[in-house]
């Protein structure tokens, strides 16, 4: 079964900028999909459609159900880690922020506490629960953002540039964490090595279009394609 099905999706921002110009995409359950493309390609715009935050023309289905038929249900299934931690972390402390989703789902207190502790541990932030997000370093904020979504045990987890700002060790820890995560994963990133490590399939976006799709090994080996879409430095000669 397909976890996500996007058909011919168009989206124009209120100021007239074309975010998406007809994107179709299928992500089978359990897959780990990499999404690459230059700045402004429309990656973030597409991800915001997957749990109905943006509502463009075309179809978005989650496990066969149109997202806009039941937004609340779709949001329980699809967890989204935003690109900028200042958007993702809005509560006074890290603990409250990680607990925000589970509390909204109505989990009992004991379960919330356990889940928050586990999520903070898995991103290496044990003991930072009482701190304010604005006192964390950027990398720590990134990890906290990831924890806010991991904690909800979503069947589909969507990451928008999860490793920007992480130090090399944090990046490897993230890779290990994601590899073991039992969920369907979609990762938008500029980090091709990360895609190589984690993803089985890759889509390439540019200018609101999906320009290529295929097994990670093939797409990442296609030097010409990568050059054309600003993902690799042209080879000399």
């Amino acid at each position: 079964m397909n976890a996500i099905e996007v058909t011919n999706l168009h989206y124009t921002y209120p100021d007239g900028t074309h975010g998406l110009r007809g994107v179709s995409l299928c992500v089978p359950e359990g897959a780990c999909l990499g999404m690459v493309g230059p700045n402004g390609a429309g990656k973030s715009t597409l991800l915001l459609h997957l749990n109905g935050i943006l509502n463009g023309h075309g179809g978005v289905r989650v496990f066969g159900k149109p997202v806009h038929e039941d937004l609340q249900a779709a949001r329980q299934i699809v967890g989204l880690v935003f690109q900028n931690p200042d958007d993702q972390l809005f509560m006074p402390t890290v603990f409250d922020d990680v607990a925000f989703g589970p509390l909204n789902l109505g989990w009992p207190e004991e379960r919330v506490r356990e889940a928050v502790t586990r999520a903070l541990e898995s991103v290496g932030l044990t003991g930072h629960g009482d701190r304010s997000p604005h006192h964390l370093s950027l990398g720590e904020q990134k990890r906290a953002s990831i924890a806010t979504v991991l904690v909800m045990d979503c069947r589909i987890v969507v990451f928008d540039e999860p490793t920007t700002g992480l130090d090399p060790r944090g990046r490897w820890e993230f890779i290990d964490l994601i590899r073991d995560l039992p969920a369907t994963k979609i990762i938008a990133t500029h980090d091709l090595d990360l895609v190589r490590e984690l993803c089985d399939r890759v889509v390439v976006m540019d200018d609101g279009h999906l320009v290529a799709e295929g097994p990670a090994a093939d797409v990442l080996a296609d030097q010409e394609l990568l050059e054309e879409h600003g993902l690799a430095k042209p080879l000399d000669g």
Partner: peptide, 22 residues
């Protein structure tokens, strides 16, 4: 614009207008 994105992040995690704290 930030407020708009924060609002998006909140609904993405099931916010329904009630602030719950433990």
């Amino acid at each position: 614009e930030r407020a708009e994105r924060v609002g998006q992040a909140m609904v993405a995690r099931g916010y329904d207008g009630r602030l719950r704290l433990l």
